[in-house]
Structures are given as C-alpha cells and as structure tokens.
C-alpha cells in the first residue's frame, strides 16, 4: 500500500474544528492503514512533525429503508496530534 492511498480526506465537523485548535487533526483513512503509516503520510504531505496518532474504527449504523435494512459504511479515522508550533491549513489542501 503506497502512502498516497493512506489519507483519504480530513473530517470537518464541529468537533474536529475545536480539536484543531489544540493541534489535533482528524482524518478519514484507509481501513488497512496503521498508526505508523498515517504518521509517515501526514508528515510527508503537510511537512509537519507528528507527536501522536490515535486511530479508531467507526462502525456503520443499521438504517432502515422501508422494510429492508442497510448499513452506513464503516470507516477508520485517525486523530493526529502534532508537536506544538506545527499547523495544517486544511482549507488549502482539500
């Protein structure tokens, strides 16, 4: 798996924007990626230094469509903490 495949897109929500103020950035990542891969990818693309990566799986929810059930997709997300002083300007990378 190449590094370009790891990061899919940043997750922009109210929660993630508050986290960004603390130097924590949230990404939607490939489900096969691990913390080490994410760290390398972020450092390469945004030219920053990563302190810590927390990852988690967000499981899809069961939704009913009339008589049938479907599932919203499951994905992996990563909360990347940078060393103080580093910043990612998400607006210009999306």
């Amino acid at each position: 798996m190449s590094r370009i495949e790891v990061l899919i897109r940043p997750i922009v929500t109210e929660k993630s924007t508050t986290l960004a103020e603390q130097g924590k950035y949230v990404f939607l990542v490939d489900k096969r990626a691990n913390a080490q891969m994410i760290k390398e990818a972020v450092e390469e693309f945004f030219s920053v230094k990563v302190k810590k990566v927390n990852i988690g799986k967000v499981f899809g929810k069961k939704k009913r469509v009339r008589y049938n059930y479907t599932k919203t997709p499951t994905y992996k997300k990563a909360i990347v903490t940078l060393y103080p002083g580093y910043k990612i300007d998400l607006m210009h990378h999306v």
Binding site: I11, V12, T13, S16, T17, M91
Partner: peptide
C-alpha cells in the same frame, strides 16, 4: 454538514 446551525467557522 458536520456542524450545528451557526457553529461553523467563517472559513468553512
């Protein structure tokens, strides 16, 4: 999307 009404920052 992703924000409650009136909570999204200007840039977004």
């Amino acid at each position: 999307p992703g924000f409650r009404k009136g909570k999204a920052p200007y840039e977004i």
